[in-house]
């Protein structure tokens, strides 16, 4: 525990470089070492054990690359909210709700870019509402967002009568708007992947380097301490809810473009899958612990697990059992690794 003052002052540059490299490594592995290892192991297993090595077939990889960001981007927001100590179950309703708003605006002849911002704005508003109900009503967000999930879903189902609405009638194929959201860079990399990475980088930088990120961690880790130090924890949480809503709105539109038609059931099941992805990525259910890198790997892992099992011809209903098992194993593994790391220091 004792550090020699003189050693500190004349730290050789080699140590500084090693320190920086270690910090970079920390950024990518913080609380998520286990996730990364299992992620790699899963890939190996699926490469060898899927029939005809279908897992690494370019078509499958492309399909995965288009699909994964839907859950991934939502999970980034949900995970950040979990670090602040709250949950959002309403993402699976905010997502199709925003998508529906987008379609309605498009049908009314409104510019798609503006419609996208409106859809994201509606997502942010629904997030704001979740946040206000949670912090002003002093009720657990698990219950608050369970309520808003069911309420808005009811409104959506009644208003849309659950009819699918194709977008082709209002929206020419191959527009630059569509290219930016779901095109392919160089005909190879789907734009969705780029968006996933971009959102991960933005949130990662905010969470790990911006003072707001420090407030998010402090709020989730020890709300009383954060408040005593002058952090407005209610506002921090509400902003996190709004980030989740905004991202869900974005994904709603992005998914709508890929599907070509609005469906009231878009994003069904995302609420628990996003939490599962965050937990698999090392996010604590109690708040205060987690990283964007971990959530990123967590979302990839959940999707790859599902995809690999489908390719291995596991019956559809059996897949749920595997994912459930995987979530439990991951949490046990992460908890074990964390405890080991503590003892090592």
């Amino acid at each position: 525990m004792v550090t020699n003052k003189k050693d500190k002052e004349k730290m050789p540059s080699g140590v500084a470089v090693a320190g920086r490299a270690k910090k970079l490594l920390n950024l990518f592995s913080y609380q998520a070492v286990g996730t990364l290892l299992v992620f790699l192991a899963l890939i190996l297993v699926f490469i060898f054990f899927t029939p005809h090595h279908l897992f690494v077939d370019p078509r499958n990889i492309k399909a995965l690359a288009k699909l994964t960001p839907d859950l991934g981007i939502v999970a980034l927001g949900v995970g950040m909210l979990m670090i602040s100590g709250e949950f959002d179950l309403s993402v699976s309703t905010v997502l199709p709700f925003s998508s529906y708003i987008f379609v309605l605006l498009l049908r009314a002849g409104i510019n798609p870019v503006f419609s996208l911002f409106m859809a994201m704005g509606v997502g942010a508003l629904l997030g704001l509402l979740n946040g206000l109900i949670t912090v002003k009503g002093h009720i657990p967000s698990f219950i608050a967002t369970l309520g808003t999930m069911m309420f808005w879903r009811g409104v959506l189902y009644v208003h849309s009568r659950m009819w699918p609405i194709g977008i082709r009638a209002y929206f020419p194929a191959g527009s630059s708007f569509e290219h930016v959201l779901i095109g392919e860079i160089g005909g190879v990399v789907p734009a969705q992947v780029i968006w996933f990475v971009v959102f991960a980088l933005i949130l990662g930088v905010v969470l790990h380097f911006h003072k707001f990120g420090n407030w998010v961690y402090a709020t989730g880790d020890n709300k009383e301490a954060a408040r005593a130090m002058g952090i407005n924890t209610d506002r921090v949480k509400t902003i996190c809810f709004m980030i989740v809503g905004t991202l869900s709105g974005f994904v709603g539109v992005m998914q709508l473009l890929r599907l070509g038609s609005f469906a009231a059931t878009q994003g069904l099941g995302f609420e628990l899958k996003a939490i599962a992805a965050s937990v698999v990525g090392g996010t604590s259910l109690m708040g205060g612990i987690g990283s964007i890198a971990g959530i990123f790997w967590g979302a990839l892992t959940i999707q790859i697990l599902e995809n690999g099992l489908i390719l291995m011809r596991v019956p559809v209903f059996g897949i749920s059992a595997f994912i459930g098992l995987a979530v439990i194993l991951f949490v046990v593994l992460n908890t074990y690794m964390r405890r080991r790391m503590m003892m090592m220091r």
């Binding site: 911006h210 003072k211 707001f212 880790d221 020890n222 009383e224 301490a225 002058g230």
Partner: peptide
Amino acid sequence: VYQEQALAPNLSISRNIFMGREPVRSLGFM
């Protein structure tokens, strides 16, 4: 300085010392 209310256990020492009063360079980056 209260007993258990003062610090966030899963944050680093420096993040705790400057909690809520972080020195920033620009745009709020620590």
